[in-house]
């Protein structure tokens, strides 16, 4: 299997630690990924809002490029990029005339492109379970987390065709394989406000406040995410959220790739823990030490 990797713009900027930890995790699991050459931005909601054709051609440029490279799968760790790829690919797969129009704009063929997947889809498959369980080196069984999937990993089901759109389980499974206590909670697929952090931060604060309330209610030490926007919104605005809720709030927000990598013994700096606004190191160290003390 050849895996193409599309990091996307956020993973080269505000979410660089997601990229770092994702790459370290793939190395640790001996999964070879190839960076998609010359990739362009997926266009998010901006390109389709300006022109429907631009909104299809922009993400599909990368899909056509992945096909030309001969990848069997294209991995997209940002769930917004993932959604725009899959949505556009579905539209042209269902409409040959539209596909011809987009191909003319791209100057590349689009027939039978490789499936586009989130890294969760790859790693939470049964085939990886023994390898992931067998790689654990740190005992994190005292760590209690909630898994936050956000909008697009499995929604809408007709487009994403992965996991359950209302109660997804893939991240819960993965984290339980490395021994973390995964709690159930009602916030799994609620929206964090996405790109509104740059435009209408008040809306993001409102939406994220509801998520933290639910996570605290469930008894979580941390929230684990699988999308750069979810992370940015939850990690960077806790002071404002605390002011809104009028109680102190400092809850680490980690990418699933960071938690897996940490459980597999990778050092915190290699996973980008030092880049967070809410430092997760004290929590992670305390949880590991507690266990060692209990055993010692």
């Amino acid at each position: 299997m050849r895996y193409g990797y599309y990091p996307g713009c956020s993973l080269e900027g505000i979410s660089v630690e997601y990229d770092e930890s994702m790459r370290r995790l793939f190395e640790r699991l001996e999964v070879t990924i190839e960076d998609l050459p010359d990739w362009i931005c997926c266009g998010t909601l901006a390109a389709p809002s300006l022109s429907p054709l631009l909104g299809l051609a922009t993400p599909l440029w990368n899909v056509a490029r992945a096909k030309r490279e001969g990848y069997d799968r294209l991995i997209a760790p940002c769930s917004a990029c993932l959604y725009h790829f899959k949505h556009a690919a579905k539209r042209v797969a269902e409409n040959a005339a539209l596909r011809a129009e987009v191909e003319a704009v791209l100057e590349m063929p689009l027939a039978a492109p490789p499936p586009i997947i989130h890294p969760l889809e790859l790693l939470a498959a049964d085939a990886f379970e023994p390898r992931i369980r067998g790689s654990v080196q740190r005992d994190l069984s005292d760590l209690k987390v909630v898994c936050y999937y956000g909008c697009h990993i499995s929604r809408p089901a007709a487009v994403m065709q992965f996991d359950d759109p209302e109660n997804p389980q893939s991240m819960d499974r993965l984290l339980s394989w490395v021994g973390v206590q995964v709690l159930d909670w009602p916030g799994k697929v609620d929206c964090c406000g996405a790109h509104f952090s740059m435009i209408k931060p008040g809306i993001v604060v409102d939406l994220c406040a509801r998520l933290f309330e639910a996570a605290l209610e469930a008894g979580a030490d941390a929230i684990v995410v699988a999308c750069p926007m979810c992370h940015a919104n939850l990690d960077t605005r806790q002071d404002e959220i605390a002011a809104k809720l009028s109680w102190p709030l400092r809850m680490p927000v980690l990418y699933f790739s960071q938690v897996l990598g940490y459980a597999m013994g990778l050092p915190a700096e290699r996973l980008g823990f030092q880049r967070h606004i809410v430092d997760p190191v004290p929590l992670m160290v305390a949880k590991c030490q507690q266990r060692m003390k209990d055993e010692g």
Binding site: L45, Y83, C151
Partner: peptide
């Protein structure tokens, strides 16, 4: 204001 979160469509 629509964020494109797709909850409605889902």
């Amino acid at each position: 204001l629509c964020l494109g979160c797709e909850t409605c469509s889902a």
